[in-house]
Design a protein around this nucleic acid. Sequence first.
DNA 1: TTCAACCGATTGCTAAACGCAACCGGTTTT
DNA 2: AAAACCGGTTGCGTTTAGCAATCGGTTGAA
Lengths: 168, 168
Amino acid sequence: MEDVHRSGCPINLTLEVLGDRWSLIVIRDIMFGNRRHFREILQNSEEKIASNILADRLKRLVERGLLTREDDPSHKQKAIYSLTEMSIRLIPIFAEMGAWGNRFLPVSEELSIRAQLLEEGGRPLWEDFMQELRVLHLHVPRDPDKPSVFDRLRAAYLEVVARKAAAE
Amino acid sequence: MEDVHRSGCPINLTLEVLGDRWSLIVIRDIMFGNRRHFREILQNSEEKIASNILADRLKRLVERGLLTREDDPSHKQKAIYSLTEMSIRLIPIFAEMGAWGNRFLPVSEELSIRAQLLEEGGRPLWEDFMQELRVLHLHVPRDPDKPSVFDRLRAAYLEVVARKAAAE
DNA sequence: TTCAACCGATTGCTAAACGCAACCGGTTTT
DNA sequence: AAAACCGGTTGCGTTTAGCAATCGGTTGAA
C-alpha cells in the first residue's frame, strides 16, 4: 500500500490505481465475462495473462478496494473474486475507452460489439448494467422486471461469433 | 512501433496505447494546461516527470498519432506539440476518470475543481471544449460567439487557489 | 483407494521499463 | 561575452513485466 502520491489530481490518482497494462483487463474479465475464480480468469484470458501477474493484480486490487476475495463454500481451495461499488462505477470509463478504441484502433469485430452497444445505450444502459452488477457481486436483490443487460451484451457477442463462423 | 497486439478488444487496444503511468499525464498537461513546449511540460509538471521519460512519451505519442510535433518558427530550437483529433476525443475518458477519481480517491480541492466542472457540464460541455481544442491545436477557425471553456476551467481553478491562499 | 485433474498461487529467471542526476551542443537574451 | 534557455541524451541502479516450470493441498471419478 502506498501512502504517498505524486499529486492530488484526480486523473493522476486514478492512473496510480489503474495506470498499467493489466489491472483494467482483469476487472473487465470479471465484469463483462463474469469470471469469478483465479483459474477461470487465467485460462479464458484473451490476452494470455501470466499467473504471477494475475496473482499480483488480484492482490493489489483487493488491497485498494476494487475487488473483494471470499472463500468458496463449495470448495476449500476456491476463492471468489467480486466487484465492489468502486469498480462497478468504472463502467462509464470502460464505455468511453471502448468507444474511443473502437473509433481509432484496429479492433476485431466480435470483440467490439460490446463496446458498440455500451456506447449506443448511453448512460441509461450503463446505470442498468451497474445495478445488475450490484445484484451479481454485492448481494443486492434483483428487480425481476428488468431485462438483463449482461445477457444482452453476451447475446450480441455470441451472435457475431456465430455469424462469422457460418460465413467461413 | 508494435505491429502485434495482445487482442483485438477495444479496451485492450486502448490500454496498449495509454496503459502506463505517464502518457495520459502528458496529454492532460498539454490539453488542460495548454503547455506546448518540452520545457514547459517538464518544469510545470505537478507530478515531476523526468526529462527522459517525457522525451520517450512525446516520441511514442507522436508515433501513435496522439500528438504532432512542429518546429516553432520563432525559435530554431523550439518544438511545438499539438493534440490531434484522436487525443482531443479523449476528453470523455478524462472526464469520466476525473469524476471517478474525485469520488473515490484522496484528491486535493484545487486540483479537483476542473474534474467537477467537467462532470457537471456533461457531454455538451465536453463537445464545446473539444471544439475549442480543435481551434487551439488543429488550426480550425474560432467561433467568436462561443465563450471559452478553457478559460472557464482555468478561472474556476484560480478562484479556488486564491480562496485557499486567502484563508491561510 | 488410487489417481488424474484441478485449486490458487509461488519460484527462479531474464528482459524491459522506470527514475534520478548530470550533462550535451546549439540558440537566444542580456 | 556571459548567462539563460532549447529539446533532449547518457549512464546507471532499481523496479516491474513476463515466461515457464512447479508447489502442496483438494476434489471427483474409477
